[in-house]
């Protein structure tokens, strides 16, 4: 089966959200950091909060959400985004 790693927002670390228009601000209870997200990255983080996902799966979901094709460019964007989320401690490898 598919053994590419899955990522998730840690269920133990709460996120608080506020959205005003296109801007989303999220407070991360684990790190205590506050992040401003654009619509696409907010959507990505919500998708990773709902269940663990691979980069490929997340790309498919984002493509559907914005009505685009899940091409290589979007996959690279998603991978970069996930790497960034990981460095911020927003997501972790799912067990």
């Amino acid at each position: 089966m598919d053994d590419t790693p899955k990522w998730q927002v840690s269920p133990a670390l709460k996120l608080s959200w506020r959205t005003w228009g296109d801007d989303t601000v999220v407070y991360h209870h684990g790190s205590g950091d506050t992040h401003k997200l654009n619509p696409l990255s907010a959507q990505a983080l919500r998708l990773l909060q709902s269940q663990p996902r691979t980069a490929h799966d997340l790309t498919q979901q984002l493509a559907a959400a914005i009505g685009q094709v899940a091409d290589d460019q979007l996959l690279r964007y998603t991978e970069k985004l996930m790497d960034h989320f990981d460095q911020l401690g927003l997501i972790e490898p799912a067990a």
Partner: peptide
Amino acid sequence: QRIVRWEVNRVCR
């Protein structure tokens, strides 16, 4: 306490 929990989380990571 929050900082310590987070540092422990980061060490584990």
